[in-house]
């Protein structure tokens, strides 16, 4: 695992150049994010005159965020009825990200447990399948997937994604497999001698020992699904998630929005206006940034096929 406690080495020409490049990258990234946040709380009128500088205290507003929440049912504003309000978006996102991530991590963990602990022939087949699927790249199965989902009446439902993601195939299978393999068999054998059932051994002994790995895989997958909009767009277009909404918001071509009291001072708000678009981006970014700040050590832990050390 990456260890920062070791004393640092002396500078060489290579590390000096790298320090400069890294500093430029970091300053650019921090400036980009800070600029976006500051413009997202700027009054549109001020932004149109000065796009570069951060707003003064009296130029700050949360109305851009209010506009984002009010425009959540963006399809309705664009003349296509049926899109949910902001609460609906959150429900879809939670089902999509939490449900999908949990199901994916749980199925992968379960199959890895069975494969690692039960030395049946089928376990070897499962392990072989995972390796083959990871090594052989299959391209362009979406057409067939959509056809199948339509046939199963799952297309454009909230469950389409969950059914697709309840799969054990992928890199995290190997991570769970290594974690279960590292648990000594003596634990299970002692429990068996005391009369514990297979279920009891799995639930009370083995799964608690890999809970840390499970949580890390769950969080990584959750972040991945939270940010993803393309699968929602393809498989459940009428159940937009927050990421899908932000993508649609980016391309919004609707008119201005009246927010009572706001328009008298600052004019009408419009989702096409840049401060509102930037405010929309932060509704998606903030929750993930908070999770990252709280769990960055776990998320950036030593992810390897030999297991995760958080």
């Amino acid at each position: 695992m990456f260890n920062l406690k070791r004393k640092h080495d002396k500078f060489s020409p290579l590390t000096v150049i790298m320090l400069l490049v890294l500093l430029i990258w970091c300053v650019a990234f921090i400036y980009m994010m800070l600029w976006a946040f500051m413009q997202s709380i700027k009054i549109e009128y001020e932004f149109s005159y000065d796009k570069e500088h951060f707003p003064k205290f009296d130029e700050m507003t949360i109305a851009n965020y209010k506009c984002v929440f009010m425009f959540a049912d963006i399809d309705n504003w664009m003349g296509e009825a049926g899109s949910p309000n902001f609460a609906g978006l959150i429900v879809n996102t939670i089902l999509y990200a939490v449900g999908g991530a949990f199901l994916n991590a749980a199925v992968t963990c379960l199959m890895a447990y069975l494969t690692a602990k039960y030395s049946y022939f089928y376990s070897k087949i499962i392990y072989g399948i995972v390796i083959v699927v990871m090594v052989v790249p299959v391209v362009g199965a979406q057409a067939s997937e959509i056809q199948l989902l339509r046939w199963l009446h799952l297309y454009d439902t909230r469950f389409a994604f969950m059914v697709l993601k309840a799969s054990f195939v992928g890199m995290y299978f190997l991570v769970f497999y290594a974690a279960f393999k590292s648990i000594p068999m003596t634990y299970s054998e002692a429990a068996m001698m005391d009369g514990a059932s297979d279920w009891c051994i799995m639930v009370k002994i083995c799964l608690p020992l890999v809970l840390n790995v499970f949580m890390t895989v769950f969080m990584i997958t959750f972040i991945q699904y939270w940010n993803d909009y393309q699968l929602a767009l393809l498989y459940m277009p009428h159940y937009p998630t927050l990421a899908y909404f932000i993508f649609k918001f980016k391309g919004a071509s609707t008119g201005a929005l009246e927010i009572p009291g706001y328009s008298e001072i600052h004019g009408t708000l419009d989702p096409r206006k840049i401060p509102v678009q930037l405010a929309a981006t932060f509704t998606l970014i903030f929750p993930i940034l908070l999770i990252f700040i709280a769990f960055h050590k776990r998320l950036m832990g030593n992810l390897s096929i030999g297991g995760i050390k958080g």
Binding site: I246, K250, T281, L284
Partner: peptide, 13 residues
């Protein structure tokens, strides 16, 4: 860990 869409919007703007 951030979604590509917000980053793309910010970068373009």
């Amino acid at each position: 860990i951030l979604s590509a869409t917000p980053l793309a919007i910010i970068f373009v703007q």
